[in-house]
Structure formats: structure tokens, C-alpha cells
Design a binder for these strands. Structure first.
Lengths: 239, 239
DNA sequence: CGCGCCAAAATTGTATGCAATCTTAGGCGT
DNA sequence: ACGCCTAAGATTGCATACAATTTTGGCGCG
């Protein structure tokens, strides 16, 4: 497993060790190096990062708050395995919150922020062209980052945190229920949204964002599988 | 201090001790028995509830995540002291989320839930008539409970959790910046909102909720006091 | 009298030990 | 062979011990 030493340079690093471990684990979950349902053994994670279980527990508790990890008393922590109903709620929440964020962002966005957006979008489209699991991960990450960047431009720290949680959980949902696997299959939704923001048209940005979320959710297969817990144990593979 | 033994009967109790302590502390913060800025000493809280610091730290971390407590490294945990800007963000978030919750609730509310609402509203209005700090606390609590009940009717667990955080933080904000001290000064907003819900008029409920939030925020004095941290140390009193 | 410095006390951060609980493997009876 | 029971092993929950850091109180000096 490559959790501890995966891109040390880009992450917060070293002031608060629990936060560092939390961020590494979150990254691993969000870009799907850790599959839903994976057991997160405290001692194992501790060895991996060279800290005691105390610190690991703090990190796992934080991830449990964000809904990325589920803890069961006396059984431990597992990467979350959202049900179709939870998946629907994630997207219902995003539909409620993100249009408002888009309106706020349209009013506040600066030209330097627009430039940042452009950079990211360019990077994102480059990744879509590439192949391989590493590029796929980066693409997933970049796609989520667009929404987080939008939220940060909106200037509300509380909503930004809510969006961080929702975007992360969306990644889990797509991993579980996505049909094509990729969240951005052919559309250029992000680019169109940015264009609306540039023109200061918050309403259009909000509207485009809403249909963008619809696009993402349309790629999901959220039919109830009769929520048999044994199904997940079988790995949902061919056999 | 009366934290540990304050209404044992009404709270979760004893399955998970960290959760119990977290809930007791949250209650104490929300109905203002613990003032903003109060230091929460781990050993002290632990003695109070007869648990080790390990458990206390878990509870404090949970409250920190909800924004009710601020932790500073190597300095400890304090009851949050939201700035005017944070206060504005709390209410901006509520304005974004609660109308959507009202629309969802209007579509899903059952007659038994309406009955529950009526009960609570009756209780709430009774408390408004009473005097004394204890009744005041109960009134504050009941006022927040209305919004949480609404969120639970809406049927989205994620949004419910967001609202729990926002309502709790609102209480802190009102404690700090409220002019009249009471959040419901003469209005019968809650009753009108319930009436709209009964008629299945989600749009009107959403609209009334929005003006209700405006009423609450209008009672605040969010002028910048030049955010000198020394000011809070002086207690903002006459000297 | 005020100010800065230093040591003692207090408090938090982390590791570790132990008890409680869950999991697993093996044996036994049917 | 199958299921059930039990005991050993593994894992979590919690308390405690110790290290690191901050806070406090006092002392001397200007």
C-alpha cells in the first residue's frame, strides 16, 4: 500500500500528525485507492505512518464525521459504503447548496481567480485525454477540485466545508454506482459554468451547475439491490 | 457547575461515553450555561464526568468539528467565540439551505408529524410566557428544535446534520450578538410556517422561513468591533 | 514601580498497557 | 459432512504514564 509516502510535497505535512494522516487517508479514499468497505485497522495504519494508535484514532474519528468512514463499536473503522438512499441524499444536498454557491461566486469572483480556474480546467482536460489508472485518479480529483474552488470563491467557510464533505462523498458514490466510471463523460460542463461566472451571470451559472449535477447523477445506477449485506461480501463480481 | 448531572433522563446515556459527554457539553453550550470563550480543561471535564482524558478529547474533537468548540494546539479547547463574519456566514448558510428543506418537508410531512409540531409549538409558546433563566434556556432550545424537526421531516440525513450544526452555532451567535437576547421577539413565525406546511404549500413555507431567518438576524448587532482579541478578555463589560 | 527572565506548575500531545469485545480456528457431537 | 460450541488470537475501548509545550509566579535588575 502506498498511503504514507504518496505525494508528501503537496499535502499539509507535519504540524499536526493526526490531520496529516486524515488528509492522506481522505485522498486515498477519494481517488479510490481504498475501496468502499475496506477495513482500516488502527495498528496497521499506525505502523504505516509510524504513529501510535492514539493519533490514528483521532484521524479516523475525523473521517467518520465527514462520512467517509463508518465506525462500528468494538469492530473498527471501514471506508464508507453508501447505500443508494445515502447516494441520493448526497446529490439532493448538492442540488440544494451548489446553485447558491454559484450565485455567490459570480458576484465575488476576481480576475485572478478566473485565471486559476482556467489553469485547472486546462489541466483537467489534459488528464481526460490520458489513459491509465493514475491519470484517471488525477482526473477524478481535478473534477472535484473544480467544485471546491467554486465554493472557496463564494467566500463562505461553512459552506466550503459542507461542500468538501459532499464532494468527497460523491466520489465514493460514483465509485460504487457509476456506470462509466468517469464522472465527466464527454461534457464540458465545467467550462460552460466558468464562462457564466466570467460574465457575472450567477443565474445561468446556477442553472448550468444544476444540470451538471444531473449529468453526474444520471451516470449512476441507484436501483436498490435488495440491500443484502452478503452481496458486498461477494464483491459484486462475476463470481 | 452542573454539566454531568443535568437531565440525565432526556439524553442518550451510557452506550458511548464520548457521545454522551459531547451531547451534555453541546447542550450546555447551546443553551448558554457555558459562555463563549470558556476554557474546557480536559482533566476538569474528565473528573466531572468520571472518565479519562482520552474520552474527553474524543468529545471535544467532535464539538470542534461542529464548530462549537475551537481547539488551539498545545493550548486546549474553548467554547467557540464566532466573529461577526462567521455569524454572517452561519445565517447565509441557513438562508441557502432552509428554504429547500421547507419545500421537501411540505411534500413529505405526515399528519402525525404535524401533531408533533403542534405539541412543540404549544410548549414553546408556554415557555415564552414564563420568566427566569431556566425558562429562557428551554425557550431557546425549543426554538432551535423547531428547525431541527423541520429538517428531520425533510428526510435527508445529511442536511439534518448540517442543520444541527447551523442551529447550534446560531445559538452561540445570538448569545454573543443578540440585542434582545430572545430569538423570538413577539413573532409567531413558527406557527405560520407550520400552517403553510399543513396546506402543502412548500413555496410559502420556504418564503416564510426566509423572512423568519431575517427576523432573527435583524435582532443581531454584527458591527465590527475592530476585532481586538483583548476586547473579549475585558468581558465587553463597563470596564 | 515596571519589565524581563527563569524555574515550577499546569496542561496538552502521544505512547503504551490492560481489560473488554469480537473474530477465527479447531474439535466435538450428531 | 455439517453445525455448534469453545478457546485462542486479534482488535478495539479506555486509562494511565510520560514527554513536550505553555502558563504562572516570583525574583532580580533597571
Amino acid at each position: 500500500m502506498t498511503l504514507a509516502d504518496h505525494s508528501f510535497a503537496t499535502l499539509p505535512l507535519a504540524e499536526d500528525r493526526a490531520a496529516m494522516i486524515r488528509d492522506h487517508l481522505r485522498d486515498a479514499i477519494v481517488d479510490r485507492r481504498l475501496a468502499p468497505g475496506t477495513k482500516l485497522n488502527e495498528a496497521e495504519v499506525g505502523t504505516l505512518f509510524d504513529v501510535s494508535r492514539t493519533v490514528v484514532r483521532a484521524a479516523l474519528q475525523a473521517l467518520a464525521f465527514e462520512g467517509l468512514v463508518k465506525t462500528e463499536r468494538n469492530r473498527g473503522a471501514f471506508v464508507a459504503n453508501p447505500t443508494p438512499e445515502e447516494a441520493r441524499q448526497v446529490f439532493a444536498s448538492r442540488r440544494l447548496i451548489e446553485p447558491g454557491i454559484a450565485r455567490a461566486a459570480a458576484e465575488r469572483i476576481t480576475s485572478s481567480e478566473i485565471a486559476t480556474f482556467r489553469e485547472r480546467l486546462h489541466e483537467e482536460s489534459r488528464l481526460i485525454g490520458e489513459r491509465g489508472p493514475s491519470a484517471r485518479r488525477a482526473e477524478i480529483h481535478a473534477s472535484g477540485d473544480f467544485h471546491l474552488l467554486l465554493a472557496s470563491v463564494a467566500g463562505n467557510a461553512i459552506l466550503l466545508r459542507f461542500m468538501e464533505e459532499l464532494v468527497a462523498r460523491s466520489s465514493l458514490v460514483i465509485a460504487l454506482y457509476g456506470r462509466s466510471g468517469a464522472s465527466s463523460c464527454g461534457h464540458n460542463d465545467h467550462g460552460n459554468i466558468l464562462a457564466s461566472l466570467e460574465q457575472g451571470d450567477g443565474e445561468q451559472a446556477a442553472s448550468l451547475l444544476l444540470t451538471h449535477i444531473d449529468h453526474i447523477e444520471a451516470d449512476l445506477d441507484l436501483r436498490q439491490t435488495g440491500n443484502l449485506p452478503l452481496r458486498e461480501a461477494l464483491g459484486s463480481g462475476s463470481f
